[in-house]
Nucleic acid binder design. Structure first.
Lengths: 354, 354
DNA sequence: AATAGTATTGCAAATGTTTTCATTTTACGC
DNA sequence: GCGTAAAATGAAAACATTTGCAATACTATT
């Protein structure tokens, strides 16, 4: 394979070894069809002999694309973004791009910093999660005419093109589902809403449906938990909620992680799901279907969203400046085992309301 | 903030706007202390007015570091690598690097391709998972004197510096644990071993301990499953293993995903864990501790490994060429609920215990 | 064999920075 | 106010490529 690397091996070294000019070497990479086959072969040989590797930085300087796309996520360490990232990465990779990744820990200042840094690297495109971004971030993107896309939340009025699902509707569907099972004593388990338009939209959707229920939804403040994406913390707070008397007969969770934690919390205190308490999530993360009991949830197709987003952004980068597109991916209620009808009165620990 | 972007805004534009030379502008970024405060202020103003963003590609061409580090993982979409990636990303980020990520789907050819691509981008360092890589990959790394590190598996004879845990020992500890609970009828649930030195090492470790058990470990071929990282498939095959008569009294799983799937499989067929069957994993993924029953497992500190690896690689990039280091992170057995003593004989097929 | 036409190849300018070295400006002691 | 050292700035080369244009080498046609 490669030779000693004592000398730096650049396009000049290759040219010299192949006894051609550097222009010809360059062409052999960028327009191989313009070379005489014999020349191409000579160059290939020299490249292999020297172990030459092209320098994209030098190419980038010519206004040629850098071949990188930036993906900025709240956190890498979360099932839902993992699935998204994987699909996104694969999809842009097939178009020849590499991806730069940065987590910002739900901090919009850090998100801005990440965008800036990526622009310094001259990424060809940038993908952000959701629509909650600082004004500075939006302006930076605007003024730099770097293609950008927002992933995960569909919003017909988004400032950036977006590929995502309707999180409000997801909240509505989840609420609808528990109502249809007859529940009225419903606990809410959501992540912190600020700076997180996905969670906010779900919450609003759920509340709007619940509040116009005439059967009388009980909005008990004790039954409304705000919990971070952490199984253990969520378990703790859900446990204490389930210890109230009476306790809610159903838990509507802002995402599947919280729902899974809720199920564990219920199990740990000896309650059966859904016999004693029904639990519904939003997301349909990897594993939600296979757990026991399997989790009833509103499916948001993370893989599909990631794939489409990647494809779309790549097109924006490569293709003509198309008009701004917004893609709304279908969501669907997955009826599984964790939701069931309201427990009979006798089953409850003490009396139930009305 | 920024002005109209009609004209390209480069260092010349800034220089002109600030009425200084480009050298001065460049210095204001790289050696600000060498500028007269007044000049610095003028330049800052021009930068802000024009919305200038430095071009790292141009810097990189000067042999200056690109400020990127490549991380190549088997898959992004897997809890264990997520945690690792997050820690790694944060750790190199504090040193000012951005990270390029590529998944290779357990395909060493694709891993090679990813390394090549990253080298074209002139990454300052490369991190790979484990020690199983193609010869071509190793040679490429060698000849390019780009700092590289191998993460996740500690191996005293590794070709690259490594930061990881002793996977063989993890296998031994898991085996030791189930033996100490008295189990002899032990089922094995592992991922495919080829091209995966982590899983192979665990398997070998486990087998070596089991085979020198004099109580008589039963190596039943029906009780040895090879299953991909998929809850549903694993559930299926574990279910059928648990239907054999007699069935194993304990399941030793190559990682926590498989262990969790095994627990779900057991639950789904009405078995209790650990009353009817004990289950142990390896990894201690996020969630393993909080599930119900909590998973007994050998903890591999993914976060710590990722953090140390990032720190170490950054040092290799920035600092003097230090001698090759290998870091072995501690692992520990987490005794939790999913493992217990062997069920009394009477309990096995029908009868309930006590 | 000469000519036109075309397929290859080479030259040199351009890309956006950093840095060395030379030059100019400033400050300070007398 | 002058000389000198130190501080600040500028000019130009260097970095590794791509590409438009010019030059050269073929091919086919007469």
């Amino acid at each position: 394979m490669s030779d000693k690397q004592g000398e730096k091996v650049d396009i000049f070294a290759v040219a010299k070894a192949a006894k051609v000019s550097i222009s010809t070497v360059s062409r052999s990479f960028n327009h191989p069809e313009k070379l005489k086959p014999a020349t191409r072969k000579k160059i290939d040989k020299a490249v292999r002999k020297l172990g030459y590797i092209r320098n994209r930085a030098a190419q980038t300087m010519h206004g040629i694309r850098s071949g990188t796309i930036g993906l900025i996520v709240p956190t890498i360490d979360h099932a839902i973004f993992s699935e998204l990232m994987q699909a996104f990465a694969k999809s842009v990779e097939t178009q020849g791009f590499s991806i730069l990744v940065a987590p910002h820990d739900y901090d919009l200042e850090r998100e801005y910093a990440a965008v800036r840094k990526f622009l310094e690297h001259r990424v060809d495109g940038i993908a952000l999660i959701g629509q909650d971004h600082s004004e500075a971030t939006y302006q930076l993107l605007d003024s730099n005419n770097t293609p950008a896309i927002s992933i995960w939340n569909y919003d017909a009025t988004s400032r950036l093109p977006c590929v995502g699902a309707d999180n409000r509707k997801a909240g509505e569907m989840a609420a609808q589902c528990v109502l249809e099972y007859g529940h009225r004593d419903i606990g809410l388990v959501f992540p912190p809403l600020s700076g997180n338009d996905r969670a906010s939209a779900r919450f609003e959707g759920a509340m709007s449906v619940l509040q116009k229920t005439d059967g009388g939804f009980t909005a008990n403040p004790d039954w409304h938990i705000q919990s971070p994406y952490s199984l253990s913390e969520t378990k703790r707070s859900v446990s204490s909620m389930l210890k109230t008397t009476p306790r809610p007969t159903a838990l509507l969770c802002g995402n599947d992680v919280l729902a899974v934690a809720s199920i564990y919390a219920a199990h740990a205190m000896g309650l059966q799901v859904p016999r004693d308490v029904s639990i519904i999530g939003i997301g349909d993360f990897r594993g939600s279907e296979d757990m026991h009991p399997s989790l009833t949830t509103v499916r948001l197709p993370a893989g599909e969203i990631g794939h489409l987003a990647g494809q779309h952004l790549a097109e924006m980068v490569i293709g003509e400046p198309t008009d701004m597109a917004r893609i709304n991916c279908d969501i669907s209620l997955k009826h599984r085992q964790s939701c069931g009808p309201v427990p009979r009165k006798a089953d409850q620990p003490k009396q139930k309301k009305i």
